[in-house]
Design a protein around this nucleic acid. Structure first.
Lengths: 192, 192
DNA sequence: TCTGTTTCTTGTCCTAGTTCAATGCCCGGG
DNA sequence: CCCGGGCATTGAACTAGGACAAGAAACAGA
């Protein structure tokens, strides 16, 4: 059960068996059915989750009530509202499961305790958020500089498998376009 | 000379005088004239800079040769290509001074040495990148969900002072619109 | 002071993407 | 087995913002 998360963690920093075991004792294994909300705007995020199975989406709701998906989470990925979790202040994000989902979750106190006992985890978390930043930067760049078609093709390349698992209009939202237009883009692509 | 950077660092994590002094010895104070490139696409970023004076921009160049500004740096801010610096691999970003600029710079080896000697700095850097993520997330959200006018008004509110210091077409690039259109947005706003 | 260069504005036309509405589809629950 | 609600598709009309072109300021340099 912990093998995936341990090897994920070791991709960034190497840890001893004892360190990993301590880490593992702090995690709580949880199961959520499809369409469960783990977080709503206005709430304080009290978890960082590692995804063992299933998928989730993280999104804002804008002034007109439209959802804007910021991130999809799938197996071996992490999901949380970092800002809200880190400051323990209410955030603006929603996090919802898209399928039946299993997570390994860490709460703020356990994380603090982990960081105190094994400071090397600070390094791991730093690396993790650094990766996250490049991703966000690249998404921002795409959102500004690329056409709808380029964004969609890039998505397919970067997240193969997702289109089969999540409704298409969520992908449209992630890419910053309307579901109708994504449908037209796809139709256009099929003609080639 | 080190007071600004020290108080910046202490905003996230508290450090002793000795720790700060060690930190300060690792920094190199540098001065760059206006329009100097600190980094070009394809190069490896070998610095993290704290801005004492002046301003910079960090940007991509897209397939059509258009610049897409990702970040402005001003006094008391940090500037670097985190991905390239962290992995010591060539990046896609350009960093250029917009005014005569003074930086305190840290190179990869000094940073490693700092982190080894004072592991608490891992925590500081983690907090710093976490803040960065919220900013990027919010920018992505604005870029997708808001109109040109809303983006511009938000920029004025969030970065007062910048419009007087940097050419307007750079702001347009940062906001993801053409300079012509930003000019029209401004004209429209003035009529109210 | 003159002059070239960069920046900002304004107008006209154009297009990528939106909005709205209609249709058909699939699939899960009774 | 049917039926109701989310999904995807398509089309027609619309709009926010882009591309292009021409001037007008502003400014740096010699």
């Amino acid at each position: 059960m912990f093998s995936e998360i341990n090897s994920n963690v070791c991709r960034y920093v190497s840890f001893s068996t004892e360190e990993l075991e301590l880490f593992n004792t702090l995690l709580r294994h949880k199961h959520f059915p499809k369409k469960t909300y783990l977080l709503r705007a206005g709430e304080v995020c009290n978890f960082e989750g590692f995804i063992l199975k299933g998928s989730l989406r993280k999104y804002y709701i804008d002034d007109n009530g439209n959802e804007v998906i910021i991130q999809f989470g799938i197996e071996n990925g992490w999901i949380s509202d970092i800002a809200s979790f880190s400051d323990q202040k209410p955030g603006n994000l929603f996090i919802e499961t898209l399928e039946d989902t299993e997570l390994l979750m860490l709460d703020p106190k356990s994380k603090e305790s982990l960081l105190t006992k094994v400071p090397k985890f600070e390094r791991f978390y730093r690396k993790l958020v650094e990766k996250n930043i490049s991703t966000m930067q690249n998404r921002l760049y795409f959102s500004i500089a690329k056409t709808a078609e380029q964004k969609y093709l890039d998505f397919l390349e970067h997240y193969p498998g997702i289109p089969q698992r999540v409704p298409q209009h969520y992908i449209a939202s992630y890419l910053g376009m309307t579901p109708e237009f994504l449908s037209k883009v796809r139709a256009r692509l099929l003609k080639k």
